[in-house]
Nucleic acid binder design. Structure first.
Lengths: 140, 140
DNA sequence: TATTGTTATACTCTATAACTATA
DNA sequence: TATAGTTATAGAGTATAACAATA
């Protein structure tokens, strides 16, 4: 069991390193890519909404949006009905980048699972579900 | 396949959050715990050796060791045969903490896998091995 | 000359708290 | 009063580069 946990942790680390390298190729850090990912799912969003989605404080969002504006990925647009708020909105480049992230995600899933025998894949995902359920019990 | 990747990523995130909470209870951050873990495996080590083990620069080790000395987990002892080097060495508290980390690790593995049916566990670990192998191919 | 660990400097991410403008 | 986002300040982790002491 300890070995299984070690391999799960190894998977997490190597996966993170690999994904980080891909993000850097697209001019993003992990945190900035996370924001781009959520913005892609939600459409133009207030910074409050993004803070909730990413689980960080509004102050952290200010920094991430500053960097993404600087990099030409997003703009801050005035909220149509609340002059306190801004709507973080993709530029063309941001849109392209978000779609690229999605392609990377699909491609990675294919590389990891694509040529895995169906029975192995089912066994893996079944175990994964059980582990995730246990983990959520622990956290609660 | 995309869903399987998403669940692997979810596992990584929740596992990391859970372990981080446990580390904080022991007065450690993730990076400092990583150093403690390696020191436990290797015994008293030079900062160069720790930099290699953790995959960071010697400068980063200086900061981590400073914090661990401050927290009473380790001391810097003179190297017996090389006056340039220091041997990072556990205090009693550091020793106890390292053993505590090991117990936490075993306990977590037990919670995650302990009551899993043997066939489910085997299916999971087999899939895990395949995924890890694919991932290491990708990274290479 | 090469290595060990330091200081100097900088960047990313995060947090809390005080503040401005608006609701 | 409450909310959206900012500035101010701080801490953790990391990197590169220049440097001192020692090998």
């Amino acid at each position: 069991m300890r070995d299984a946990l070690n391999r799960v942790l190894e998977l997490a680390v190597v996966l993170n390193d690999d994904m980080t390298r891909d993000l850097e190729r697209r001019g993003l850090t992990g945190s900035r890519a996370h924001l781009v990912w959520e913005l892609h799912r939600r459409g133009p969003s207030t910074q409050q909404a993004l803070a909730g989605a990413l689980g960080v404080t509004p102050r952290a969002i200010t920094g991430l949006v500053d960097a993404l504006v600087e990099g030409g990925f997003v703009t801050r647009e005035p909220h149509p009905r609340d002059r306190r708020a801004t709507l973080v909105t993709f530029t063309k480049r941001g849109e392209r980048t978000a779609k690229g992230l999605e392609r990377d995600h699909i491609e990675l899933a294919g590389k990891l699972f694509g040529d895995m025998p169906a029975t192995t894949f089912r066994g893996f995902t079944r175990g994964l579900d059980v582990v995730l359920a246990r983990l959520h019990e622990i956290v609660t």
